[in-house]
Design a protein around this nucleic acid. Structure first.
Length: 256
DNA sequence: ATGGCTGTCAAAGACAGA
């Protein structure tokens, strides 16, 4: 079973690339972020034609998340329980014994801004949600754009970026709170070395020079971690014309 | 170097991203 996540930075713009990637990699479940498309304009047909069930929640211009699945989805979660976040950043669904949470963590802009405080508050709500979800669903996977650099080796220049947005201690503590609930960074379990990134700035030839950040993560509960076969960041779509600034990340799990 | 790209909305340039 192949689980994937990709921040596409506009699904309308990237649709041909997403369809091409599905054709090449055949994910069973694909979580998308930054679809930037309101629900009434979501391009459902091409995905349904490929045999995917779709769950999506979008808004004009910003944010937006979607889950595509070749297996039937149930128990959809479209927002935090009992409240309404005006920003479309969270989707959950169940596929068999697998529970999926698709996250688009707020960027946070800069420390000492309201957006940073929103990011930390959002992450605290996620930690509570994950606690509840994990109690209900042992086979839990969090996939998405976390907008946090977990460790210094996940950044091309951790010295220059030290203490700044994405690397600040409160952000890393928020991520640690989630991983401390028993969720494991799948890519890191198999690839401990530095130099692996999932995002590269469009400017200054950052991709060509492999100066990026690893901020797109797949976190697996212990029962899923035991079935982990492989984890990859696919750099190929970043070489396309008009690419997303993020690469897709995927894991293969043994059917258990 | 409060820069540089890219996308949205809307029809220029502000806002946001990371």
């Amino acid at each position: 079973m192949r689980l994937a996540t990709w921040n596409v930075n506009s699904l309308p713009v990237r649709l041909p690339q997403v369809l091409d990637w599905i054709d090449r990699k055949a994910p069973d479940i694909l979580c998308l972020q930054e679809t930037k498309v309101p629900d009434g304009r979501f391009p459902s047909a091409p995905f349904r034609d490929l045999g995917y069930e779709i769950l999506f929640r979008g808004q004009p211009a910003y944010n937006g998340v979607a889950i595509l699945s070749r297996r039937p989805l149930s128990d959809p979660l479209r927002d935090f329980p009992g409240e309404s976040d005006p920003e479309c950043r969270l989707l959950g669904a169940t596929a068999g014994s697998l529970r999926i949470l698709n996250l688009y963590v707020p960027n946070g802009q800069d420390l000492e801004t309201p957006k940073y405080r929103y990011k930390l508050a959002w992450l605290a709500r996620i930690a509570s949600l994950v606690e509840e979800e994990k109690a209900r669903y042992p086979g839990l996977a969090l996939l998405g754009d976390f907008n946090i650099v977990p460790e210094d080796k996940d950044a091309h220049d951790p010295v220059a970026l030290a203490g700044q947005i994405f690397l600040s201690a409160p952000e890393r503590q928020a991520l640690s709170r989630i991983t401390g609930l028993g969720l494991h960074d799948a890519f890191r379990l198999l690839h401990p070395e530095p130099g692996h990134y999932s995002w590269w700035d469009y400017r200054q030839g950052m991709f060509r020079r492999n100066m990026g950040l690893r901020i797109d993560l797949i976190l697996l509960s212990s029962s899923l971690e035991k079935t982990l076969l492989s984890a990859e960041i696919d750099r190929e779509p970043r070489k396309n014309e008009r690419p997303s600034d993020h690469a897709p990340v995927f894991v293969d799990l043994a059917d258990s």
